[in-house]
Write a protein that binds this DNA or RNA. Structure first.
Length: 761
DNA sequence: ACGTGTAAACT
DNA sequence: AGTTTACA
């Protein structure tokens, strides 16, 4: 017997065994097996059907059946129902048995059939989150004993090693006919490229590198999802007769046999995840440590956690918690979730209002304090026990919402645990030295947990949430509005002026300089929520909506704090799809405007200097001096495959004109060359590699308009008049012209669609 | 398949 | 004027 301490790298199912990979403290990897017997529950239609079912099922050698009492209803958690538990010896007959029972009229409902096998094993048997620190005892490859070593307070992630991987073909698409052009790898400080033409050599170098570095995790970069990359890689290797082996036990053939089929490629013993744009991975946004948080929250293996959408991640946590409390999981297809409540239109209208906004007092303000409630929604869920099962419509009281809460609900239990965890890391972050590895990890944990908490709230009202309950969602919103109203009253009672408020933040101002501690203490005492200072503005400008000056818009302001930090919401600087030149210009504009000691100076000297800057920026655009293409380039994400677009948006036109085949998820970079051109394809030019030799001819008018737009959003309030800067595009009546344009446009589009079709074939 | 709101460009 | 897309 051997024992070791390490981290749970991966858990997966291989026919009748669970495979566990442990990364030991010494840096070794250990592969262990544990028997797995899949199971599920049957609710029979009636007693005689039950007996018949048991009789039939127990005849099979592969199947063991027995009665078990389990909770079936989240709403009635005290009720235990007698169910038939079916346990199979192996996975071999699992699917066919399930199919048969789904059609069987003696079966009223099946439970736990929606869970992945790995979830079944993790929730019911192992009860240790993947990535946890563990102590294991084993004999050969047989797992004898495993226990969790508590590492919940550790910022350091498990010492898993990562290999970043990127692949390009000549054509840009991943069809097995296309040859591999280049493989790029990054491992620690190491950055390598294999691109010397001969494909077999590239693959050999790649395979050698993987075996030499022996990474635990392979991150597929680029625009494809990992399944596609691996499928391509293995099918391409097969096609050119290269035996590509990247796994950890390639000589041990029995596992490869099952896991590395071309339909569902896996690399044995390593985690393979993709880091593409899709919201489903979050790898870029929250980093590797953020992914660890997700895996632990979802109680899922890393690979699954990386692939799962937030909805499925939350569902997995919900199911884990429920399984611990002897619940069984209804299948999604026939689970009557809480959306079936039929309500009248009035009930919906009165219930469903999101966060509340108190209109901003448009214009320039001095000395404004911005206060934010910390994780308001999460705290409301915990404080008021708002859960999927605690809110329902009362039939007696004709559709009134009642809050029924005998015990702490499922949602508050989960939210509380991860809220505490986030608070812990947030405190720790303040103590850690800036720019240290630890602080970066801590930051990733904090951000990932924040995202999870926000989504826990958001998904309560989601149709796709198995346990979702709109009533809970609406109740959270209702309470948050109540908090804001209370806040407004307190602020005004204490003699402050409220200039703006939006869901969980308030902007307040007092004419005399005073200590703000009083209001912070009063607010947290009277609302039961913790509130903190977000910014203390020297100057703050609240903006009106451009389209209609009477309707104020939310999250649309800019200011500068007493620490000289610019804060900007909702205007051009914040957007990704705005050229750098415009962003830089607007930033400079704000700095110039705010470089004043008080508001009267700002309104005169500050504003005049800003106007000067506008003139300069327009000059730069018109002459092109000192500009290069990266200043003018606009980046936009291609959200769908090019064939799907019905309209030729600028970025779509640019994508079509790209030399390589554009794919969904690509970031398209382009500049405007002639924004008024009849043919949408001629309006823009794609920029393929940012540092080109010369600045291409660009649409000066268009970029000047952008400068003026950016100036207007910032200076509009101060009386900025764009017409001073020369002729606006006048509405020359070109009606006939327009009609002609349209017809032409349609022809191009059709032609383009045909071209694309032939290209992809 | 977390929610809602808004602007810009296309039809 | 209404719809689609992307972003916050």
């Amino acid at each position: 017997m051997t024992s070791c301490v390490g981290w749970l790298l991966d858990v997966s199912i291989d026919n009748d065994h669970v495979i566990l990979w442990i990364k030991t403290e010494e840096g070794q990897t250990v592969k262990l097996r544990d028997p797995y017997h899949p199971g599920f529950y049957i609710l029979p239609r009636n007693e005689s059907d039950a007996l018949r079912l048991i009789q039939i099922l127990s005849r099979e050698e592969e199947i063991a059946v027995r009665w078990e009492y389990r909770r079936t209803s989240l709403f009635d958690s005290n009720k235990q129902t007698r169910l038939i538990h079916v346990k199979l010896r192996s996975l071999r007959y699992y699917q066919s048995l399930l199919k048969k029972l789904e059609r069987d009229r003696q079966v009223k409902q099946l439970y736990n059939t929606d869970l992945l096998h790995v979830q079944q094993y993790l929730f019911s048997k192992l009860k240790i989150e993947p990535t946890s620190r563990v102590k294991v005892e084993y004999n050969g490859s047989k797992l004898l004993e495993i226990s969790k070593i508590d590492d919940e307070d550790d910022v350091n992630p498990p010492p898993f090693s990562l290999l970043y991987f990127d692949l390009r073909t000549y054509s840009g698409i991943l069809a097995s006919d296309d040859a591999i052009r280049i493989i790029k790898l990054r491992y620690g400080e190491d950055d390598v490229e294999f691109d010397n033409g001969e494909e077999k050599v590239i693959l050999q170098q790649f395979s050698d590198y993987v075996h030499e570095k022996n990474p635990d995790i392979i991150v597929c970069m680029g625009d494809y999802d990992k399944g596609k990359v691996l499928r391509y890689l293995f099918s391409r290797a097969k096609k050119i007769g290269f035996d590509l082996r990247l796994g950890r036990d390639d000589d041990n053939d029995d596992t490869n046999h099952y896991s590395n089929t071309l339909e569902n490629p896996r690399i044995v013993g390593r985690i393979c995840i993709s880091s593409n744009y899709r919201k489903t991975t979050y790898f870029d946004e929250f980093g590797f440590v953020g992914l660890i948080e997700r895996a632990r929250f979802g109680f899922l293996p890393l690979e699954v956690a990386a692939k799962y959408s937030i909805n499925r991640l939350i569902d997995s946590r919900n199911c884990f918690e429920l399984v611990q409390k002897d619940f069984v999981i209804p299948s999604k297809s026939n689970s009557s979730n809480n959306h079936e409540h039929v309500r009248t239109v009035e009930q919906i209208v009165s219930g469903d209002k999101g966060g509340m906004i108190i209109s901003p007092q448009i214009g320039l303000h001095e000395n404004v304090l911005a206060l934010d409630y910390d994780s308001e929604y999460a705290n409301l869920i915990v404080n008021h026990n708002l859960s999927y099962e605690t809110l329902r419509l009362s039939h007696e009281a004709r559709g009134k919402v009642v809050h029924h809460q005998p015990n702490k609900g499922l949602l508050p239990r989960i939210v509380e645990r991860f809220l505490k965890r986030r608070v812990y890391f947030k405190r720790l972050l303040k103590e850690l030295p800036k720019d240290s590895r630890e602080s970066e990890w801590c930051d990733q944990r904090v951000n990932s947990l924040k995202n999870i908490l926000v989504c826990l709230y958001g998904s309560t009202g989601s149709l796709w949430n198995r346990f979702g309950n709109v009533l809970a969602y609406e109740e959270i919103n209702r309470l948050s509005r109540g908090v804001l109203i209370k806040t407004k009253d307190i602020v005004q009672r204490l003699g402050y002026e409220l200039v703006y408020a939006d869901t969980d933040s308030v902007f307040i101002k007092s004419k005399t300089g005073r200590d703000y501690n009083e209001i912070i203490n009063t607010l947290s005492k009277e609302t039961g929520l913790s509130i903190s200072i977000e910014y203390h503005y020297k100057f703050l400008v609240l903006l009106p909506l451009e389209a209609d000056e009477k309707i104020e818009v939310l999250k649309h302001y800019y200011g500068i704090t007493f620490d000289n930090e610019l804060v900007v919401r909702g205007i051009e600087i914040r957007r990704h799809d705005i050229p750098n030149f415009i962003k830089q210009f607007q930033t400079q504009l704000l700095c110039t405007l705010f470089d004043c000691k008080d508001s009267s100076e700002l309104l005169t000297k500050g504003y005049e200097n800003a106007l000067l800057l506008v003139t300069q920026a327009i000059d730069t655009i018109m002459t092109g001096e000192g500009l290069d293409d990266k200043d003018l380039v606009i980046s936009k994400l291609l959200r769908q495959n090019i064939e799907k677009y019905k309209s030729l948006f600028p970025h779509v036109s640019a994508a079509i004109r790209l030399s390589k085949h554009p794919l969904k998820g690509d970031t398209i970079q382009y500049i405007y060359t002639d924004s008024q051109h009849n043919n949408p394809l001629c309006r823009v030019a794609p920029i393929e590699n940012i540092i080109s030799e010369s600045l291409p001819p660009y649409d000066k008018e268009k970029y000047r308009e952008m400068v003026l737009d950016a100036s207007e959003t910032v200076l509009g309030f101060f009386g900025f008049d764009r017409t001073v800067y020369g002729n606006l595009k006048t509405n020359n009546d070109e009606r006939g012209e327009r009609r002609r344009k349209w017809r032409w446009y349609e022809e191009i589009l059709e032609q383009r669609v045909r071209d694309i079709h032939t290209e992809t074939l």
